[in-house]
């Protein structure tokens, strides 16, 4: 029986056949239900191991949960209040921010420069690109250990080279600023090439006639760079800054492995380079305290920190003169 699509049944005139109802039902099923089948595997795993833990962290941070004790209690915002007075926490925040500042800003400027240099008619261009991307391929563990050796106090190569210039025996690992610098060098070594390639891609997408117009107007190459390249690159710069921020504020592996004798992720004998992520790890897994509740509060503060700094970055960079 033919049915009009708005539900009213209609008796078809004699001689009019209708196509199979089964095919129609199958099609409705295919169009309406099958999309969910395609996203289901993703969401099932994602919810189980991705979303649920995120939410649960918030809950755990409001308890005094502890791996060692079988019972725990809801304590409200007590953990957060404790954090505010926790000097180790703020020390970690300071370290994290310090390292981030030293590593991000120079790194992105270097990446811009590198991209600018790569954006020419080079011979062996793939070779150069591959060379600067190589650090990305190495693992964080390898980087941290290699550089820890290079920055070693007595036998490190860095000190040897500096010694040739009359600077002697820098205790990279022991000092605060010096450890920050060493760690920043590691981060910069790893990411400059990668970011340079991203900038390079964006640079090559800039239409050539913008440069031609600028050249005709009398702009020298450097002014062209400032007035054409940088504004057109602004969304890419925003992207790399935000990604660097998110990654940089989460720093863990390099400082963790910088310590000569792993003393439970304290970040140096004086906590001089303990990052927030390390403090989280210390409180939850390293020290024999296993304070999950407290560590969860630290995790949320880390998230907050990243969100705030990313927002600030975004607003600041937006003020770069945008492309006309």
């Amino acid at each position: 029986m033919a049915k009009m699509s708005d539900g009213a049944a209609v008796v078809p005139p004699p001689g009019v056949r209708t196509a199979g109802a089964a095919r129609r039902r199958l099609r409705r099923f295919d169009l309406k239900v099958s999309p969910y089948a395609y996203v289901a595997p993703f969401f099932l795993i994602f919810i189980a191991f991705g979303l649920f833990p995120l939410g649960y962290t918030a809950y755990v941070s409001l308890t005094d949960r502890n791996l060692l004790s079988p019972t725990w209690h809801f304590v409200g915002l007590h953990n957060y209040a404790q954090l505010i007075h926790d000097s180790y926490f703020w020390n970690a925040v300071e370290n994290t921010l310090g390292i981030w500042v030293i590593s991000t800003l120079p790194q992105l400027i270097l990446a811009l420069l590198l991209a600018h240099l790569l954006n020419t008619g080079l011979r062996a261009r793939t070779l150069f690109r591959a060379a600067v991307l190589l650090p990305q391929v190495t693992s964080l563990v390898a980087v941290a250990l290699i550089f820890a050796q290079l920055f070693g106090h007595d036998y490190g190569l860095v000190n040897y080279v500096l010694g040739l210039f009359g600077i002697h025996h820098v205790y990279w690992e022991a000092g605060r600023l010096s450890s920050w610098i060493a760690l920043s060098v590691m981060v910069m070594w790893r990411w400059t090439g990668y970011n340079a390639l991203i900038y390079l891609a964006a640079m090559q997408a800039i239409p050539d006639d913008l440069y031609e117009a600028a050249a005709i107007d009398g702009a020298r190459p450097f002014r062209q760079f400032l007035h054409v390249t940088v504004p057109m690159l602004r969304p890419t710069i925003i992207f790399t800054v935000i990604v660097s921020t998110i990654g940089g504020l989460q720093l863990f592996t390099e400082p963790y492995l910088f310590e000569p004798l792993r003393q439970g992720a304290t970040g140096g004998s004086d906590r001089q380079y303990q990052t927030v992520a390390m403090y989280l790890y210390e409180k939850a897994f390293a020290s024999s305290e296993f304070k999950f509740g407290y560590a969860s509060a630290i995790a949320w503060c880390l998230f907050l920190l990243i969100a705030v700094i990313s927002a600030v970055n975004f607003l600041v960079i937006r003020r770069i003169r945008s492309a006309e």
Partner: peptide
């Protein structure tokens, strides 16, 4: 809505979910 959720989680640090994940 689902797509936006996914994009949003890309901004979240890995360390955030670590503790409940360990409990799991």
């Amino acid at each position: 809505a689902l797509m936006l959720t996914i994009v949003a989680t890309m901004l979240v640090p890995v360390q955030l979910g670590v503790i409940p994940l360990y409990i799991e």
